[in-house]
Design a protein around this nucleic acid. Sequence first.
DNA 1: GTCGTGATAGCCT
DNA 2: GGCTATCACGACG
Length: 194
Amino acid sequence: MPRLPRSFFARPTLQVAPDLLGKCLVRRLGDARLVGRIVEVEAYLGHPDAASHASRKNPQRAKIMFGPPGHAYVYMIYGMYHCLNLVAEPDGVAGAVLVRGVEPLEGLDTMRGNRGKAMPDRNLTSGPGKLCQAFGIDMRLNGANLRGRTLWVEDRGHGPARICTGPRIGVDYAGEWARKPWRFWEEGNAFVSK
DNA sequence: GTCGTGATAGCCT
DNA sequence: GGCTATCACGACG
């Protein structure tokens, strides 16, 4: 299956984000191969997007967002969970797409083991923290090249049926920027977080 | 089904 | 001491 080239990511974040819907996130984890079809994302820009880590006064945590496209920006949130972003825009311009939901296609048993307990399958990857846990994504993958051997994105041709848009989740502090319709999801998919 | 809340760590003022 | 691009669980009905 063809991996998405760097040129796919080297575009405006608001174009890359909806284009990622229907693409497949692939993770090699030991002998396991985990695949999830992306069904929900959010776009985060650079300054002056007040909801973005890249627009903080000291965006040290988000420096990967300013780097070359086609890399992973991973951060820890609420002390317990991780969130996966895919860096967009040309090198030097901040922008990333938060992956909020994927539909599990391969490696379900490994995902169930990573999530622990008796988690219903519909809760495996229907949220940014959940999917990172299921895919074994943590800070070790921050800055990883998406054309390496552990994490990448493939185009398997299963585009989204229909795309919906709305405000981003959990950024109410960001004033007018919180109301931008920069969350994109596939209509009706069970693995959308809300 | 909805709602409220606690967990937990790194960085902020 | 407060906040965070979250989640799971228990109470309620």
